[in-house]
Design a protein around this nucleic acid. Structure first.
Lengths: 167, 167
DNA sequence: CGACATTAAGTTGTGCACAACTTAATTGTG
DNA sequence: CACAATTAAGTTGTGCACAACTTAATGTCG
C-alpha cells in the first residue's frame, strides 16, 4: 500500500495527516456555514424569514417575477426544496404563485405587495451581518471569490465523477 | 432616512448595494457548503456514511471514546442533532453507547471494531476531496484559517446580540 | 437533610437538502 | 398525426440543524 502521496501533487503528505487536516477543514467550513446561518437567523427573526427564504426573496427582489425553475437555477435548489418553501412564503402572503398561461407546466412566482414592502425592512440586515463579521468589504468580496472558485471546482469534479460512473 | 452608511465603517456604500452584495456572498457560502457536502456525499457513499456522520467518526477516531457532550463540543452540535445521528451509527454497528458508571447522566460513545476498521477505508477520502478542490495544501490551510476567523467573529457577535436581548 | 438549580441525554416539531418518484404539459420524431 | 422523450412542479422519505421541552442524575445551599 502506498500510504505516502498515493494520488499525487501533495508532496509527501501521509494519509493520516490528511485525515487530521480534513477534520479541521470540514469542521471550519461546516462551522462557518452554521455560524452564518445562526447570525442570519437572529437578524431575520423579526422579518419572519428563514435564511433560505431570505435568499429566495433576495432573488425575487432583484429579478421581479420568476418561474420556479429560474429561482432554482439562481440558487441551485431543486423543486423538492423550493416547492414547500414557496408554499410557506405564499401562506405568509409574501409571494404569489400562478401557472404560466403559455406553458402550463411552469409556475411563476412574484412578490406580493407585502413581499415588496418587506424589502425595505430587509435593507438593514446585510449591513448588520457584515458588521458582525468584523471584516472590511474588500475581504468579504475576496472570500466570496475564493468560495466561488472552490464551489466550482468541487461541482466540476463531482460531475466528472458522475460521468465516470456511467461506463 | 440615512440610507448611506447608516451604521458606519463601510465608507459610502448604500443599503441597496449591500443587499445586492449580500445575495452574492450568501449564495457563495451556501453554495460552497453544499458543493462540499455533495462532494463528500459522493466520496462517502461507499462507506455508508453521511457527511455529519463522517465528522463524528473523525472525532472518535482522533480521540477514542468520548461522552456525547464532548463530541458536541468538538463539532458544536447539540444532543438534538447528535442523539438520532449516534443511534443510526449504532444500528450500523459503527459505534457503541453506554451509560457512564460514575455519572449516570453521561453516555460514552466509542467506535466498535467495525467502526475502527472503517478508518482504513476512510483514509482515501480527504485526499480525493483535496484533489477535487484543485487547491494546493497551503491555500486549503489558509481558507480554513479565514473561515475560522469568520465563524468566531459571527459567533461572538451573535452571543453579544443574545446578551443585549436580556435588558 | 431537603428543596432547588444545574447538567446530560433524549424527544418533539419545524424547516431545509436531496434522492427518487409521480403527474401533467410540451416537444421532437417517425 | 401519434407516440416516445423531455421538461416543470410537486410528492415522499431520509437525514441534518435547531428550538423548546422532558427526564433523570448530580450539585448546591439554606
Amino acid at each position: 500500500m502506498d500510504s505516502i502521496d498515493s494520488v499525487g501533487s501533495f508532496g509527501s503528505v501521509a494519509d493520516e495527516d490528511f485525515l487530521r487536516l480534513d477534520l479541521q477543514v470540514c469542521f471550519s467550513l461546516h462551522s462557518a456555514a452554521r455560524a452564518f446561518n445562526a447570525a442570519y437567523r437572529t437578524a431575520l427573526k423579526e422579518l419572519g424569514l428563514t435564511y433560505p427564504q431570505y435568499l429566495v426573496m433576495l432573488v425575487l427582489w432583484e429579478h421581479g417575477e420568476l418561474p420556479v425553475k429560474k429561482i432554482g437555477a439562481y440558487l441551485r435548489l431543486d423543486s423538492g426544496t423550493l416547492s414547500p418553501l414557496l408554499k410557506r412564503l405564499e401562506s405568509a402572503d409574501l409571494v404569489e404563485r400562478r401557472r404560466s398561461r403559455d406553458d402550463e407546466r411552469s409556475v411563476t412566482v412574484r412578490p406580493t405587495e407585502n413581499g415588496i414592502a418587506l424589502r425595505a425592512r430587509a435593507l438593514a440586515v446585510p449591513r448588520r451581518i457584515a458588521t458582525a463579521t468584523g471584516l472590511p468589504l474588500d475581504e468579504i468580496r475576496e472570500l466570496r471569490t475564493r468560495l466561488n472558485v472552490l464551489a466550482e471546482a468541487l461541482d466540476a469534479a463531482d460531475l466528472a465523477a458522475d460521468a465516470a460512473d456511467e461506463s
